[in-house]
Amino acid sequence: MKKYEFLEHTADVFIVGNGKTLEEAFQNCALGLSQYMVNLGDVEKKIQKKIMAKGTDLKSLLVEFLTQFLILHDSENLVFSSIKVTKFDDKNFEIEAIIEGEEFDPEKHKQGTLIKAITYHELEIKEKEGIYSVKVLVDI
């Protein structure tokens, strides 16, 4: 099982997160998102943040959760290399996570591609033989 994968789309890219549980799949999808923007190996864990998101269903919870990373990136110039989901409530659709990273530095971090937004386009959440996968298309 790969933690995350990137799949084809004409204009943009799908990010897939896999895990033995749904929360692990969410977590790995966020890790994939971070990797798409910057090489994770270059990012030190200097700053810790707690993030929270709330949705109306699982799909919107995923979109809201991933959007939090874009907000932190744009407003505080942060990139992340460690993501741990600390609360995952799939009845009330709430998630909390502790994330670690540092301020983006073009001299230090090999840059990938900026992600503008998380979309609902062909968004998938599924389970097959005990492996959960979430797939989301990001706007670039």
Binding site: L70, I71, D74, S75, N77, Q111, T113, L114, K116, I140
Partner: peptide
């Protein structure tokens, strides 16, 4: 939230295409 994202970025090109 939108304001927070926009405050530091005025006068910048961004990335992508």
């Amino acid at each position: 939230t939108a304001i927070k994202r926009g405050l530091p970025q005025l006068g910048s090109l961004g990335a992508g295409n």
